[in-house]
Computed example of a mutant assay.
Amino acid sequence: MAVRQRADARRNYARILAVAEEEVAAHGAAASLEQIARVAGVGSATVRRHFPTRYALLEAVSRKRIEALAERARVLAARDDSRAALLEWLGEVVTYCISVRGLAAVLTDDGGPGPAPENACSTALEEAAGPLLRRAVRDGAVAADVGVGDLIALAVGVVLATEHQPDHAARAHRLFRLAVEGLSPLPRPLPR
């Protein structure tokens, strides 16, 4: 009988997670846990048993996307231009956070009141970006005092600052470019 319950629990978990992915895509980090339970055909207590906090649910929903960003960082680490590779990856973090409602919240949320638990999503991104940043610093393309956490906070902050604006994706990418390129105009080509 215990094996049967574990199989049911696994099915419930998978069903809840699938519904949660759809609900978060539609409603962002504020997706209703009760609605998720209803659509998944389980009780609210079952959802809370698998995901004791909203943060735990958002983290589970974001896991595949975070893994994809980590893999992308590994691919970009082989590029010759270390600064371009780092900025391309950070641009992809911005794009993911824009397109996957709730991901920015997962990357900034500490899980709720009390001592901050480890943020597995942020930790995974920081570990993935570490080699990109270290190489860019070593090449002199990025200041030595810049940390991966700073860069993730910048990318996520831009997304959170623009998420309720019209054409928020274009605005977020523009602000991100301003942040990494600075406010000075590009140097003009020398006359021939």
Rank of each mutant, 00 (worst) to 15 (best):
L151P: 12
L151S: 13
R101M: 11
T123Y: 06
A155S: 13
A124N: 01
Y96T: 15
V146W: 01
A129P: 00
V142Y: 01
V137F: 04
G111Q: 06
D110V: 06
V148F: 04
V106I: 07
Y96M: 13
G111I: 04
T95L: 15
A136P: 05
D139W: 02
G130L: 08
D145Y: 06
G149N: 10
L133R: 11
N119G: 05
L107A: 08
G102H: 03
D139N: 11
I98Q: 14
L154C: 04
E118R: 09
S122H: 12
A116Q: 13
L107C: 12
P117T: 10
G112Q: 08
A129C: 09
V137R: 15
G149F: 00
E118Q: 07
G111E: 04
L132N: 13
P115W: 08
V137N: 09
D150H: 03
G102C: 10
P115M: 11
Y96H: 13
A105F: 15
V148W: 07
G111Y: 00
L132G: 07
A128V: 05
D145R: 05
E92G: 10
R138I: 01
A153K: 02
I152A: 02
A143T: 06
D109A: 14
G147Q: 08
V137W: 08
S99G: 15
I152Q: 00
A153S: 13
A116W: 04
V106A: 15
G149E: 01
P115T: 12
A128G: 09
V148Q: 05
R138K: 11
R135P: 07
E126K: 05
A143H: 11
T95D: 14
R101I: 03
G112S: 09
E126H: 06
V93K: 04
A153R: 14
R134H: 02
G149M: 00
C121R: 05
S122Q: 12
P113H: 10
I152W: 01
V94G: 08
V137Q: 14
V148R: 03
D110E: 06
V100C: 14
A124T: 10
A141T: 01
S99L: 14
C97M: 04
Y96V: 09
R138D: 13
T108W: 08
L103G: 03
C97G: 07
A143Y: 06
V106E: 14
V106M: 13
V94H: 00
I98V: 15
V137T: 12
E126W: 02
C97L: 03
A104T: 01
P131L: 02
P113M: 08
G111V: 00
A120F: 07
A153Q: 09
E118L: 12
V100D: 15
G112D: 08
T108K: 15
A116R: 15
G112E: 10
T95Y: 11
S99I: 01
V106N: 13
A155I: 00
V142C: 11
R135K: 11
I98R: 14
